[in-house]
Design a binder for these strands. Structure first.
Length: 232
DNA sequence: TTCCAGAGAC
DNA sequence: GTCTCCGGAA
């Protein structure tokens, strides 16, 4: 199998069906990075409520947010869920920005994925997916983002084992795709939109999925009606 | 593995 | 009422 051709085929199929995604929503690098932390295991609609609270209070910039204590931050981001945990994670990220670039993310321009990714992963509360989201969407660096939808879709199609680790799944893309920021950006956006609409955890709606042709081509699974079930 | 922890869909 | 959500830490 030519993995590059297959993965580009997935990309084109989603692109043809869904059109451009215009990701990641947010006016500044900091706002995008903040959203990446707040959306951890959380529906985006709830993140928007938290962002709205911060915006109304003029706190969507690092300097202003850094002056609040954790309880004040927690109260504002409450709609995003796990708010006490996430308030600490935002604090840790602000401390990172303070040391790294004096709270100005423009100071991170010129950094590389190889240089910055390990540093981000040192921050407690920033795991691999959040780090890659910040690198790609906030800073425009070519670090491919994978997530639960990526694993579920490719797993159900039989292209990867469903228990594949984050790093291995990321390499599955980065080993064959060119390091193209625009491609990486749109690819992950399309995966999330496709996953949300067609590849629900319990029962996928494969019949109408933009990627149905690939399921038939690669899958050891059986597609019955509008849902996908494991092959006996 | 379990907890976090609100909110919408079902 | 249960499940899931643009995960990560202990």
């Amino acid at each position: 199998m030519n993995r590059e051709a297959v993965l580009l085929g997935y990309y084109r199929a989603m692109q043809a069906e869904l059109g451009p995604s215009r990701w990641w929503p947010g006016d500044t690098s900091f706002e995008i990075a903040l959203g990446a932390i707040l959306t951890q295991n959380t529906a985006w609609a709830n993140v928007e409520k938290a962002m709205h609270n911060l915006r109304e209070s003029g706190l969507l910039e690092p300097g202003a947010l850094a002056r609040l204590n954790d309880d004040e931050v927690a109260a504002l981001i409450r709609p995003a869920g796990a708010f006490r945990v996430k308030a600490v994670r935002v604090r840790n990220f602000l401390n990172f920005l303070h040391e790294k670039c004096d709270l100005d993310m423009d100071g991170l321009r010129g950094e590389t994925v190889e240089g910055l990714r390990p540093a981000l992963l040192e921050v407690s509360g920033i795991g691999p997916e959040t780090a890659d989201s910040i690198l790609l969407y906030a800073l425009g660096l070519p670090s491919f983002v994978v997530d639960a939808y990526t694993r579920r879709i490719l797993g159900r199609h039989g292209l990867i084992p469903e228990d594949i680790g984050y790093g291995e799944l990321r390499d599955f893309f980065m080993d064959v795709l060119p390091p193209d920021v625009a491609l990486y950006n749109e690819y992950h956006a399309l995966i999330v939109r496709t996953g949300k609409n067609w590849c629900a955890k319990k029962a996928g709606k494969c019949a109408s999925c933009p990627l149905a042709v690939f399921l038939e081509e690669f899958s050891p699974l059986t597609c019955v009606g509008k849902s996908i079930i494991p092959h006996p």
